[in-house]
Design a protein around this nucleic acid. Sequence first.
DNA 1: TAGGCCATCTGGTCCT
DNA 2: AGGACCAGATGGCCTA
Length: 216
Amino acid sequence: MLQYDEELSQRLGLPLEYTDTNNNGSNKPLRGDKYSLRPRSMRRRDNMEEQEDTKPTTKSRGGLKSKQKPAPLSKYRRKTANARERSRMREINQAFETLRKVVPQISPTQQQNEKLTKITTLRLAMKYISTLSAVLSSSESSQDLFSDCSELDCFLLESDGESLPLQSDFSDHSLTPPNFSVDFADGSLTPIDFTPLSPDLSDHLTHFDPFLSDFS
DNA sequence: TAGGCCATCTGGTCCT
DNA sequence: AGGACCAGATGGCCTA
């Protein structure tokens, strides 16, 4: 069984997601082994497999006109399908991780190191894209656009009905429109060039902090 | 303890 | 036939 899973994962080029027993001998998945099958699920699966194994192989009752339901997948195909599904979901989650890095984060004072949920990430991204689109399509200069932005919603993203102030950490700001000009309270204009992404981007970002702090 | 979020399993459907 | 995609079900984990 275990050997079977290992062979399967090797053939599919996928990591072994779960094992029948952990090193400590218990069925409890190790913390951090987030893709392990839950203990109860393992037991359920084992029970089902046992039942399936002991079940006599019955064919459709001869001649009965029942709606031909496709036969359930064989154990092997079910396992491969599950592995593919996990792989597919993993890709989706990796895409979410990438997206989380691109969209501005929620102020850490509000959400201390909490990972954005998927739905929040999507909503933030939508709002962020529309904000960027507004910047790009504006016939005004970006400077005017910013200075006209008296409404907070120019700088706040809404998610789940709540306004979320942008965090000033604009790391990896590949989507940030270039040549932003920031109108500081003292009337000085500070152009901020977010492109190209350079290691000393943080130098620029320090100029952005006091600006954004007004909205947090 | 309820509710939110998530991972996983599963069967159905569509596509190649 | 087999893979991709999807949605429902289930159960674990975490927080208010």
